[in-house]
Amino acid sequence: MNQTVLHSTVFFTVYGPPGPLNYAAFFLTFLLFFITIFTNISLMLVIYLESHLHKPMYIFLFNLAVNGLIGCLSVCPKIMDNLVNDIKGISHKGCLLQVFFSSVYASCAYVILAVMAYDRYVSICKPLQYHSIMTPSKVKMLVALVYFIPITMLAFQIFITSRLPVCSYNINKLFCDNLAVVKLSCVESALSNLYGICMIASLVVLPFVLVVLSYIKILLVCLKVSKESRNKAFNTCAPHLITFINFSTAILFSFVYNRHSTVSKEVNVLISVLFILFPPLVHPIIYGIRTKEIRTCITKIIRTRIFPNSLDFPHLKSERKLVPIMTLDGTAAGQGLPV
């Protein structure tokens, strides 16, 4: 290997040589990756095909699924490649791209969850004003901000990191993250550290606080309403709350993971799966199970588009009417034929 290739390649030291353990990890990663892609695309198709799901909550959910695909595709293919190949490496530019897209996944997901919490707050605390507040133009603006702010901030972070001189080329992790790439540098970067703190405050702490405040407001309102209204509010918020707790747990483990480079191989695999695969895998499942409208739409699509003549779902069929059979003299002769 020539010096040019050596000095432009970052190597992952946590992977072992190809063998039964690596092949088993490859199979498991591929299986989880495939299921994650399938569930997110399925959720996106359900929301896209059913016009009555074109509401703010489901539009934000659609973007959460898109974001999950970004996270999986940015990391998993390279992890699977490294598991079965002798050379466990990636170009320095490729490493920076991996940092960028995996960071977009993490930050945009948190911002989307904050926007969804705001939508739930308006829906429950200001139901009569909901349609005047969550207008189509405002929803479009929120979706644009969900991507524009994190992507702009992350692009500047990657620019700062790319300007640092590189002295080391080994990362003891399954994939690249910004802190690991910064540690490859010969020098300490005060600007990079300060900007990283600002990003965490803006894209993690602030969305977290907004979600917590939204649910405090929702809780205070629920305490004043009837038990039936309270149960309805809980059923509306439960999928989002479970998703938020799940992703917050993944983010917490990721922070611990990023600041401890000398962890065991097993911990590396566990944290990587928890951060990259677990949230995008369970989010569509949570919403599919807990949201009645999505369950109904999935059943309807299976019945009408996939197996139109094979499956029978009586609760989706309209009640058949009986047309009376008339005799020649105009009188009814019986119950008639179903139509």
Score class of each variant (00 low, 15 high):
Ile87Asn: 04
Thr9Met: 08
Ala114Val: 05
Tyr48Ala: 05
Leu43Ile: 04
Lys173Val: 00
Ile276His: 09
Thr243Ala: 06
Leu220Gly: 10
Val269Met: 09
Leu32Ala: 15
Ile70Asn: 12
Ile245Tyr: 01
Lys55Leu: 09
Asn22Gly: 01
Leu164Gly: 05
Lys93Ser: 11
Ile289Ala: 06
His52Met: 01
Asn258His: 08
Phe27Met: 14
Met153Glu: 00
Asn235His: 15
Ile289Arg: 04
Met199Gln: 12
Ile70Lys: 10
Phe307Tyr: 15
Asn82Phe: 02
Gln335His: 11
Lys55Thr: 10
His131Thr: 09
Cys297Phe: 00
Ser102Met: 10
Lys227Ala: 09
Leu31Gln: 03
Ser229Tyr: 01
Ile294Thr: 06
Lys300Ile: 01
Asp177Asn: 15
Ser254Thr: 14
Leu174Asn: 13
Phe255Lys: 09
Val122Gly: 02
Ile70Thr: 12
Gly89Tyr: 00
Arg303Leu: 03
Ile242Met: 15
Leu31Asp: 02
Ile271Leu: 15
Glu266Tyr: 14
Cys167Val: 13
Phe100Tyr: 14
His260Ser: 13
Ile276Thr: 15
Ala238Lys: 15
Tyr105Lys: 06
Thr304Glu: 05
Leu220Ser: 11
Thr152Cys: 04
Val282Asn: 09
Thr249Cys: 15
Phe159His: 14
Lys217Asn: 13
Ile171Leu: 11
Val182Ala: 12
Lys224Val: 11
Asn2Lys: 09
Tyr23Asp: 06
Lys317Glu: 08
Cys72Arg: 14
Asn40Arg: 12
Met116Lys: 05
Ser189Phe: 04
Val122Arg: 03
Lys321Phe: 03
Ala333Cys: 01
Lys232Met: 09
Leu128Asn: 04
Pro150Glu: 05
Pro56Ser: 05
Tyr105Met: 03
Ser74Asn: 08
Gln335Leu: 13
Gly71Lys: 07
Ile90Cys: 10
Thr291Gln: 08
Val122Asn: 02
Val187Tyr: 01
Val205His: 07
Ala180Gln: 11
